[in-house]
Nucleic acid binder design. Structure first.
Lengths: 147, 147
DNA sequence: GACTGTAGTTCGTAGTGCAAACTATCGTCA
DNA sequence: TGACGATAGTTTGCACTACGAACTACAGTC
């Protein structure tokens, strides 16, 4: 009988946030994965391999993801001059706008989920969560500008 | 410049939990959706429509999900005697075991993520999170035995 | 210049999720 | 009783996600 209530609440909360994410994505007629890609790119453009590590995907999965995002005009592949095998993924103007808007909307709605809470509780929650999210075994492969 | 740090941390947490969920699912050679279905059924068997509402899916999506779960021998469809259109979804013995194990593993690993925190903080957090997860605009369509 | 490693892509497969159209049954009301 | 609208599930076609294995093309090295 471990103390499992907190973990359970966190899991449920995560599911909730995932739904918010999905709903916001739909507003832009993009998938959550595509939106995540865009938000990640706000932290700067990267190559396919690096991005696939950041997203926790096989690189073969990246190809399709970027293909579809490119078809929608939100990113472009830019051939690397020094290494002609590699290419960078970059946001288009439209992609950047969407990324910002989506980021704003998601955080706003998640704030809405949280609702009114005691400022002290908020701070405590914040520090605990930031601690979790920054944990070493976690951070390695984790996004910089996640969302 | 709203206070967005907490929301951002929550979004990242959601992504983390999603990964944990995916990793645990893989240990059972099932998909996260299938595991979620099983965990939900721990709260009692239901019909397709009710479950689709609980999972936030169209009922047409449920058909396939249950088909595949049934093929893997973790659930069965049981024709309703009173209403011959309807059918209940029930866990098989194997399904129930997997559901319990997966539930345990997920909560254990999420507990691991949380790490050491002050017992007072823990209680505080618990009550805050439970409050959020139970919020009215949320609970309506939400799982009972979520995870 | 051959060799090994790395960056991305291609292909086949399984699964997710939707919307629209459909089947079968239920409950009601005339 | 028999027509009718509502409800429970299924089917179909589509777009997307994700994987692993095999592949192409280039890079760096010995």
């Amino acid at each position: 009988m471990e103390d499992t209530k907190l973990a359970t609440a966190l899991v449920r909360l995560a599911h909730l946030v995932t739904r918010v994410y999905a709903e916001v994505s739909k507003e832009f007629e993009l998938t959550p994965q595509q939106i995540q890609l865009l938000c990640m790119l706000l932290g700067g453009s990267t190559g396919m391999t690096e991005m696939s590590r950041a997203l926790g995907l096989e690189k073969s999965s990246m190809t399709g993801l970027v293909d579809r995002a490119e078809r929608r005009g939100v990113v472009v592949r830019v051939r690397d001059q020094r290494d002609r095998r590699a290419c960078g993924i970059e946001l288009t103007e439209q992609g950047r706008e969407i990324a910002h808007d989506a980021h704003r909307k998601v955080t706003a709605r998640v704030e809405g989920l949280i609702g009114e809470i005691d400022p002290g509780d908020r701070e405590r929650l914040e520090s605990v969560l930031v601690g979790i999210v920054r944990a070493p075994h976690v951070g390695r492969d984790l996004p910089q500008v996640a969302l």
